[in-house]
Structures are given as structure tokens and as C-alpha cells.
Amino acid sequence: MTLTLDKLSVDRGGRSILSEVSLSLRRGELTCLVGPNGAGKTSLMRAALGLLPFSGTSNLAGLAEAERSRMAGWLPQEREIAWPVSVRFAVRLGRLPWRGISSPAEQEQAVVAALQALELEGLADRQVTDLSGGERARVLVARLLAGSAQCLLADEPTAGLDPAHQLGLMEQFQARARNGAAVLVSLHELGLAARHADRMILLHNGRIHADGPPASVLSPQNLADVFGITAWFGETEKGPVFQPLARLDKTL
């Protein structure tokens, strides 16, 4: 089971945030959700999980909480860890939906694997309050990956990370997709999205403006219409490279 939305709309305070968004994620694909600030990326993910009131249908939101939390992992944008807990404890929280279903050994194995994937073994017994912002972000991604859900939704997981860790995270999401998960990641770094996405969804004013492979979604026309920029897009031996060049409308 992946995520399927049909005519999902969200209104807040009389303003339409999302209107009639329909999409279906596919297993094995890393889908990047892009769009300007306020396009509705976060609302789309939250509504899809049933964390926000909406009209239309979302298959995940229809599930009971416990079942949904095993089907779909959710990484919010806010990197909150309220107490001085250990890194290991924070990552273990990702296994909460599986308590009583997986054996304790399986639970611990998933935690160790997630710590290894994010190169956090050395920090496992440190307090999260003593970590840098980037390390904290990785702890929370490890928490998400520990959950072993078949559908992953991550809201701007790469924001504020250095380039090496941004690439590292995207590789992790890609690896999850290759293992059969459906992964939806929202991003502002279009270059990063272009490099790693199998599929890109461009959101503009609460509607899907374009949906397809990165090269077609990041067309000059779409970039001008949605972001108001020109950009260079090229294929290199390392894959596609995307670089914004200039703003079209200086009155922004």
C-alpha cells in the first residue's frame, strides 16, 4: 500500500491551501515534492496522513492511527526533541508503532540499522541536546527510517544541512525507494531534487502544476511560471545538474 490522494482539498481560515490534488505514489520511486513557499507542500503531506482536516480522499488518512503509523512514516519539518534524551532513545521512538508486533530483537536490529545508515553509531549514547543542528536532523531521519514503513513522507529533511549530509540523506531515501518503499520528500533545493528524484511533483498555489521526470517538470516554462526564474539544466556523467541563474521578475 502506498499513498493515493483523490481530489484532496484543504481550506484554512476561508483560504484555499490545496485544491483537488490527486496523485498516487509508486513503490520503488523517490518522488520529490517541490514548489515555492506557501505552495502547499507541508499541508499536502499532513492532510494525506490525516493530521489536517481536508475534503476529498486519502487512503492513509482513512486508516486507524496504529495501522497508519506502520504503513507510513512521517518526518515533520520542525526538528523538535523536547528532553535531553539519548540518540538511541530518539531513534527507538521510530519503532513505537511496532511494539508488541515485532520481537524485541527485531526492534533493536532496526534501530541499529538506522543508526548505521545515518552514521550515528558513535553518537548513540550522547544526549540529543548536545548535538549540532545537522546531527539532530540526522537523528530524526534515523528515527523515520527505523520505522520500516513502506511509505515515507519527509518534509524538508535536508533544510539547513551541509552539502555532504544533504547528498547522504538523499542517497538514504533513494536506497529506501530501491528496496521497494514509496518515498515522498519535499525540498527547496531544486538541484538536489533533480539529482535524486525519480519523479517530481511541482506544486503551485495549492495545485499540481507538473508531475513527471525532473527534466520535464523543471522545464523553462514551468520555472518561469512557478518560480519566476531561469535556470541551467544539463546532463553530466554524474547525472542531471540543475542550477538557478536569474530572477525574471525583479518586482518580487
Binding site: L51, E65, A66, P76, L96, L140, R143
Partner: peptide
């Protein structure tokens, strides 16, 4: 107690982990 543990990550993340 388990829900309070999950809530360490904030309300949204806790809800994502299945906390009602």
C-alpha cells in the same frame, strides 16, 4: 507513558507515530 515518550518529538511527529 508511551505516548508521552513519542510526544518528545512534538505533536505532529507523535501523531505520525500513531499517538491519538
Amino acid at each position: 507513558r508511551r505516548s508521552l515518550d513519542a510526544l518528545s518529538l512534538g505533536e505532529d511527529a507523535a501523531a505520525g507515530l500513531g499517538v491519538n
